[in-house]
Design a protein around this nucleic acid. Structure first.
Lengths: 355, 355
DNA sequence: ATGAAAGCGCTAACAA
DNA sequence: TTGTTAGCGCTTTCAT
């Protein structure tokens, strides 16, 4: 295959230097290109490197200081459309800057999150991005405060996407969507379609993202002069299966609602199916809205009205903000806007059922 | 935060050793735990490490030989549900073995693929997994043969998922689904529902995965005694947008079909929408099948009959096979089975339109 | 312009 | 049991 005598094991710069008849120092200079080297020698070295199919050892390079910049995104699971989009955004923005991007999945387990962050510290990641809402308890605060200080003290940056900073003086920055505003807006949308009995499906008490959506939901209800009791939150958590189960149960139990606000689009998918299984129609009998506008939301039955949270942009923003203006940004809180995407899952409540 | 005098920069093993009053060698031994160290000293070292929040420098460690094992998956894009599942499988299997997993996205660009593989070589990845069908031309064969030899000569392994080995003597192994069998099976399913005019939507000439599906489709047609002209392949490529566009056009142009076999579920999503937009019903007027059974295929309108390709299992299998029985496996070709998932997008052709 | 040599942080001989 | 030393592959002074 064009290379004479491949010795097992990686080709080192020494072999390149030897073949080119120069010292390793000269070879290094020629290869990196940022030191004056006469064109002739330079060409010989480059030639040798190509012949040998030499690639530098990133570890050795990192050790001596010139390591490749690496960013890490940590998500619950890669197969969640929302997380996948965030990861893609981070990957894209990192790649644009010549950074390497590692993605880790935790399955929602704090233990695995810790291990992964530790790993990233060992690997010398310069940027760690933690994505997704969490239940914000003392353990969380301690854990993340620890990440933040550890990372910071070695010059790396921590960004929290959709989860809160564990305290005021913490060297981490947070960028997230304005969940409360988004939820308030869709709820208002439902309200102005005539719905008065709207159930929120997919609460997860303690989870910052969901709590904010619930708060927005309640706020919208209040805005319209409805009493607090008008709110009906089903704490079934997220995921298609949870949505399906909870919706099925709800339909058996009560009739006292005309619309459902699903905690996210996956919950909406499950709810939609459950409603259809129960022989009810959307939006004629029941209206449904979701959250996130995942890529296939328009293919649901019916196409889902939902809140668009530009997930890829969130990922891109996370790295952009972290890398720009680094000192000043620490501790900052960035809020990204969202908007409603109107499709076909919302209609007027059935006549006589406005309650 | 419990640590006295954090000097900017990473804590090294030397500082740990000093604090514990031992040499770096002893510290290293105590930390790694695989050398006899008296419990007392060991405890002191561990204590010091914890106080200082020490994490080993992975690069230094890698340099000296004990580096962390790293696997890399390369996909077109992380947001494709199918690729995401494969990546998740690889990630999971890698994590189970204590390996680190990096995922790279190429956007389908050969250039970026090459850069990424080079990067992985630099980083010392022990396993590189390339996922997804490709158009198999000379450039492809050369490129991948090069990866294979380069990786092999430094002791790393290459696995090709859903794409062919570039030649017979190449140190790479391929694991993929039996596309032809799967396609043949769904086509037979359509045939036995009574359809005779089935169009294949989403051909991509030269692409190995799609070509195999088309071959299976043609084979099934032949199995049922249909002439070759019965095949109707629309080469619109993959993706929801492509499917939507192609289907819209097709509906304008002809009426000579009662069923469509979409190249994958995303194409099916686009086709479904186009059919609905044209005022036709699935499956009453037209039947549709997809390929892959992505997680949301059951939420399409109507729920999609499709071929289940266990993507996560593909990812897991890739690493499992590559790591097991390494020498013997090289050059091997593993085929994973698939099966049809029957949902509601297939019905009998409209009466009088069997053709 | 180029080579010799030091050193990044760590582990593994080799001594003691 | 523990410390001293060498060296992994590379870049970078410091001489030449």
């Amino acid at each position: 295959m064009g290379n004479d005598m491949v010795s097992k094991g990686r080709v080192t710069i020494r072999e390149v230097a030897e073949r080119a008849g120069v010292s390793t120092a000269t070879a290094s200079r020629a290869l990196s290109g940022n030191h004056p080297v006469p064109p002739a020698t330079r060409a010989r070295v480059l030639r040798a490197a190509r012949d040998l199919d030499y690639v530098a050892n990133a570890h050795a390079r990192a050790l001596v200081g010139g390591g490749r910049k690496m960013a890490a995104v940590v998500v619950r699971q890669v197969t969640s459309p929302f997380y996948a989009q965030v990861a893609e955004g981070v990957e894209a923005e990192a790649a644009d800057r010549g950074w390497l991007c590692v993605v880790g999945a935790t399955g929602g387990d704090a233990q695995r999150e810790m291990e992964f962050v530790r790993l990233m510290r060992e690997e010398g990641a310069r940027l760690v991005i933690l994505v997704g809402g969490v239940v914000e308890d003392e353990a969380y605060r301690e854990r993340v405060a620890h990440y933040a200080h550890a990372l910071d003290s070695s010059g790396a940056r921590l960004v929290l996407c959709g989860r809160p900073a564990p305290g005021p003086e913490i060297p981490a920055l947070v960028v997230e969507f304005d969940n409360e505003a988004g939820a308030r807006a869709v709820t208002a949308h439902l309200l102005s379609a005539g719905h008065r009995r709207i159930v929120f499906l997919g609460g997860l008490p303690g989870n910052t993202a969901l709590d904010a959506r619930v708060a927005g939901y309640r706020a919208a209800l209040a805005d319209h002069g409805l009493p607090p009791e008008a709110a009906h939150v089903v704490d079934c958590g997220l995921g298609r299966a949870a949505g399906h189960r909870a919706m099925t149960e709800l339909l058996k139990k009560t009739d006292e609602f005309t619309a459902v606000f699903a905690g996210d689009d996956m919950v909406a998918a499950g709810a939609l199916r459950a409603i259809a299984d129960a022989g009810r129609r959307v939006p004629d009998d029941i209206s449904v809205v979701g959250y996130n506008d995942i890529p296939l939301a328009e293919d649901f039955n019916p196409p889902l009205t939902t809140v668009r949270t530009p997930a890829e942009e969130l990922g891109r923003a996370a790295v952009r903000i972290a890398l720009r203006d680094p000192e000043h940004a620490a501790g900052a809180h960035h809020l990204l806007g969202t908007h409603i995407v109107v499709r076909e899952s919302v209609g007027a409540p059935p006549p006589g059922r406005v309650l």
